[in-house]
């Protein structure tokens, strides 16, 4: 389903590394001493209770927040959008421009200085992938919640990012839209895009993930393969989360 005509060969040249990363805001340590390495490919799922720091983790990774201490390294950090090491992000509440669905996707391609002759084809493919061909000329904000999220994801993917961050992108979607979004993410992962997926949905994590990062109160408690995590969550907090209990 993805645009296979791109000349970009995706895949990060080096993994993303968090080294002793902390974030303090208003004297409150919201992210505490995170160390982890995210490999080039596959789908990493970030889980944890509300307020654990999952979105902050993603924003640190995206460069939207600067860590108070520690370092985050990866070739994507200084990469321009649309280059082989670039990063795209889809937010829980999709940020859509006050334009049509078509113009929303064309916007990021314009910013990427995509040649005009390729633009129509790429936008068309992106809309097709998101199953929004009929809504092509519909103002983006008049789309339903599911359609908006699919459009935001299609727009994020059209620049063929090396990393795609999904911040609870399916939290408020119906099963059909969730299925489409997961399919789009899986297609992107299959063509080499690294996906980092924040979710609360345990079944979704099992469906889409290769590895899990479990964050609790700003601390990364577990980073394991999906299989290992569900066999042994590695901490009483993670076990309580999976059981639907508040940890003691």
């Amino acid at each position: 389903m993805l645009d296979k005509t791109s000349e970009h060969s995706l895949q990060l040249p080096d993994p993303v590394r968090f080294r002793d990363v902390s974030l303090t805001i208003n004297r409150q340590e919201l992210i505490a001493n995170i160390n982890c390495t995210l490999e080039h490919t596959g789908v990493s799922v970030v889980m944890g209770p509300n307020g654990a720091g999952k979105s902050l983790f993603l924003r640190l990774l995206a460069g939207l927040l600067k860590p108070t201490s520690g370092t985050i390294t990866g070739s994507y950090i200084n990469a321009k959008p649309g280059t082989t090491s670039s990063l795209s992000m889809v937010f829980q509440d999709p940020v859509l421009l006050r334009r049509t669905a078509h113009a929303n996707i064309a916007y990021v391609l314009h910013q990427q200085k995509c040649p005009e002759e390729q633009l129509a084809e790429k936008v068309g493919n992106a809309l097709k992938t998101a199953r929004l061909e009929r809504q092509r000329e519909t103002p983006a904000r008049r789309l339903s919640g599911g359609e908006q999220q699919r459009l935001a994801l299609a727009r994020a993917l059209v620049v063929r990012p090396a990393i795609l961050l999904l911040d609870e992108a399916t939290a408020s979607l119906d099963p059909a839209s969730t299925h489409i979004v997961e399919g789009m993410a899986a297609d992107a992962a299959a063509t080499g895009t690294k996906i980092i997926f924040v979710t609360h949905d345990v079944r979704q994590a099992k469906r889409v993930g290769d590895d899990i990062l479990f964050i609790h109160e700003g601390r990364l408690l577990t980073h394991k393969s999906i299989h290992d995590f569900f066999r042994d969550p590695g901490s009483k907090e993670a076990q309580a989360y999976l059981d639907g209990r508040v940890p003691e």
């Binding site: 995206a62 959008p81 334009r99 916007y107």
Partner: peptide, 22 residues
């Protein structure tokens, strides 16, 4: 639009143009 703009690493001039148009 702020986080979207920053995730695209737009220049301030590009942000201004987008805000004026939208």
């Amino acid at each position: 639009y702020d986080e979207f703009f920053r995730s695209l690493r737009l220049t301030n001039f590009a942000k201004m143009k987008t805000l004026l148009w939208d």
